[in-house]
């Protein structure tokens, strides 16, 4: 079952020049994808059954999203969005804290809730 011939080849290097290029390339790619943070304008909340659109800089509003596990409470307004409580097991979405700028998102995967902030000129992303 196990081959026994290959064993005498020398061990590959810990890193090679190509590895470093790979890392640099990936970092640049990720920075390109994640960077370009813009001022947020609109908060979109998507649950399994409904979705909401609220202004980021409006008065504070509490939204209760019904998901498969129960209610996820999201607060939006005053320049931030935050998940206050959620019936998920690990509460990563709650511990994530507040989000403030365009392109950022809060996700409660177990309860299927996505909260994201859209920046200026990003409204075409809403057509779905």
């Amino acid at each position: 079952m196990f081959k026994t011939q290959k064993n005498c080849a020398p061990l590959r290097d810990f890193y090679t020049k190509e590895d470093l290029w790979l890392v640099v390339l990936l970092c640049l790619m990720l920075l390109g994808l994640a960077g370009g943070r813009q001022r947020g304008e609109l908060v979109v909340i998507e649950g399994p059954g409904a979705s909401w659109q609220l202004p980021l800089f409006g008065p504070e509003e509490l939204v209760e999203v019904e998901g498969p596990l129960g209610k996820t409470k999201v607060v939006v307004g005053g320049g931030r969005a935050q998940i206050l409580s959620s019936p998920c097991p690990d509460h990563t979405c709650v511990n994530w804290g507040k989000i403030r700028s365009g392109g950022q998102a809060l996700i409660c995967a177990p309860n299927h809730v996505v909260v994201r902030i859209l920046g200026k000129g990003k409204y075409h992303a809403l057509t779905h």
């Binding site: 590959r12 290097d13 810990f14 790979l22 890392v23």
Partner: peptide
């Protein structure tokens, strides 16, 4: 030729 680092990442 990739090393351990490249393969692992």
């Amino acid at each position: 030729k990739f090393g351990f680092l490249g393969l692992s990442i």
